[in-house]
């Protein structure tokens, strides 16, 4: 690989943008494909699309010889709005599942390092902290406070930034009222998962945490290419 291609790949990685590197194993120029590039007419299009979707690197056989596809996807992140009981269980579960996890809650009584050891914690309002975090299509957001003053901005912001998963705690009735308050297109609002989490009959905060991470993983692994 030449230095320019390596530098271009590293620039995509640093900016949290997806890229796929196509390397002919027998030698020859290495090709960088950026997320969003048009793959129509590319003989390797389906395999490259699969690499973007799955995040898996793989060796493929082609008419031009063996190629290695390096899938470079940003590490997935999970933003939790609310330093609540569910978040206390969800933060370590998400870390084990490979997510960089951030907790945001302006209520300093909840957002304490004692309750969230080893977790990135912002004891600030979502409108103050989220724009600086750079939410993107590799970020999931779960709003867990039940408090519209804290959750609402975070939800619309996550939809605007194209987060791959947006979920909100609350009953169907609560969510119906929420939809009346939020200003976004009906299509965007329909992306909010509420009630939050995979339906496994979860009751305790820890069980709800498991159902939420299951939904987040499903959204990550089944997202469109």
């Amino acid at each position: 690989m030449d230095l320019a291609t390596l530098a271009a790949l590293n620039a995509e990685r640093a900016a949290r943008r997806a890229a796929v590197l196509v390397t002919p194993l027998a030698g020859g120029p290495v090709r960088l494909v950026r997320g969003g590039d048009d793959l129509a007419g590319d003989p390797l299009g389906p395999a490259i699309g699969e690499a973007f979707r799955s995040g898996r690197s793989a060796t493929i056989a082609t008419e031009a010889g063996e190629m290695f596809l390096t899938a470079s996807l940003p590490p997935p992140r999970l933003v939790l709005i609310g330093a609540v009981h569910i978040s206390q269980a969800l933060a370590p579960i998400a870390a084990i599942a490979g997510f960089d996890t951030v907790v945001v809650d302006p209520r300093t009584a909840f957002a304490t390092p004692e309750r969230f050891a080893g977790v990135t914690l912002h004891a600030e309002w979502p409108e103050d902290v989220l724009p600086g975090l750079g939410l993107d299509p590799y970020t999931a957001l779960a709003a867990l406070t039940h408090d519209p003053k804290i959750d609402d901005f975070a939800l619309t912001h996550a939809l605007e930034r194209g987060c791959f998963y947006v979920g909100a705690l609350g009953s169907r009735k609560t969510h119906a009222r929420r939809l009346e308050r939020l200003t976004a297109s009906p299509e965007a609002l329909s992306r909010i998962e509420a009630p939050i989490g995979l339906d496994i009959g979860a009751v305790s905060p820890a069980e709800i945490a498991v159902s939420v991470i299951a939904s987040v993983i499903a959204a990550l692994r089944r997202r469109p290419a």
Partner: peptide
């Protein structure tokens, strides 16, 4: 064939 992780560069 096993497959790579999402971010195996780090």
């Amino acid at each position: 064939t096993e497959t790579g992780t999402v971010n195996s560069a780090v």
